[in-house]
């Protein structure tokens, strides 16, 4: 394990002693199936994701964890020839209800991607993007949001003097934290993270992980990761996916130390494949 960073409290401690979550079934996945064309990517998944906790999706490549994540903000809608059955509900409301506007859904569900992808704009404009597209242009509000979001993403002190410079001038870890700031600028309820540390070095990874444990005070976080240590370090609950099915789902400590299923056991002990 890399040395502990000097910044915020160690993320490895205290991950199980959270007490009861506010709403244990904030996101409900209900008999959900999903197809890309003829290929079924997800089969009959049922799960409940609690509010203001970190839930990790683990599993081998192609197991459907990213597909499920991208369905939580309906980003899969961009792909042609997709089809689904079943339902996903956030706070009791179906994502697929015809009255749901995808745009307003995505304002409630922020997303951070595997490869940091800031816009070709200044740092400032990156953060306020979601406000600008919603037509909120009042300078005072934007300034306030920029500072709050960048502080929230633990980036403020590093960039406060160059807010109007290109975002591409930042380092990889800084760019990823900028993407987190951008995702939380609109104060979403849920933050989806698709392998947020896959493109980062260990120091930057630890910074992001520390940040996540702070962010869960305010947001419900769902993270896809290939790294079981990461799941162990940051998540409260972990779900193991295999071949489009949810194999096992429970508190992280329990799932990683005493898995019920043999498949899970094989995967976490590295015997998979």
């Amino acid at each position: 394990m890399p040395p502990e960073p000097a910044t915020p409290a160690s993320p490895t401690t205290d991950f199980s002693a959270q007490g009861e979550p506010l709403n244990p079934a904030f996101i409900e996945v209900d008999h959900f199936h999903f197809w890309y064309g003829a290929k079924q990517a997800i089969q009959d998944i049922n799960m409940e994701i609690p509010e203001r906790q970190i839930t990790a999706f683990i599993g081998p490549s192609g197991c459907g964890k990213t597909t499920l994540l991208r369905n939580l903000n309906r980003l899969n809608d961009l792909i042609e020839n997709i089809r689904h059955e079943g339902d996903i509900r956030i706070d009791g409301q179906s994502l697929y209800d015809p009255s749901v506007e995808v745009i307003s859904l995505r304002k409630r569900v922020g997303m951070v991607f595997q490869k940091y992808n800031p816009f070709p704009k200044t740092i400032y404009e990156n953060v306020v993007f979601s406000l600008r597209v919603a037509g909120r242009n009042a300078k005072a509000e934007l300034d306030e949001v920029v500072e709050r979001s960048l502080r929230g993403a633990a980036l403020w002190d590093e960039v406060k003097d160059k807010l109007h410079e290109s975002a591409y001038g930042l380092s990889g870890g800084q760019q990823q934290r900028l993407c987190i700031a951008r995702a939380i600028a609109n104060r979403p309820q849920i933050l989806l993270m698709d392998e947020p540390c896959a493109a980062l070095d260990p120091v930057a990874t630890l910074k992001i992980e520390a940040l996540m444990t702070q962010l869960k005070e305010e947001f419900t976080i769902v993270i896809v990761t290939h790294n079981m240590q990461q799941a162990a370090r940051v998540s409260d609950r972990t779900a193991y996916f295999f071949m489009g099915r949810l194999i096992e789902y429970g508190p992280t400590l329990q799932l990683l130390s005493k898995p019920r299923e043999k498949a899970t056991q094989d995967y976490i002990s590295g015997r998979y494949g």
């Binding site: 816009f119 993007f129 597209v133």
Partner: peptide, 20 residues
């Protein structure tokens, strides 16, 4: 990735094209 990021921020398709 940049297009998806814009859409995930709640931009419409035209906003994504125009701004990003």
């Amino acid at each position: 990735g940049v297009r998806e990021a814009a859409l995930a921020c709640g931009a419409s398709k035209w906003q994504t094209i125009q701004r990003v």
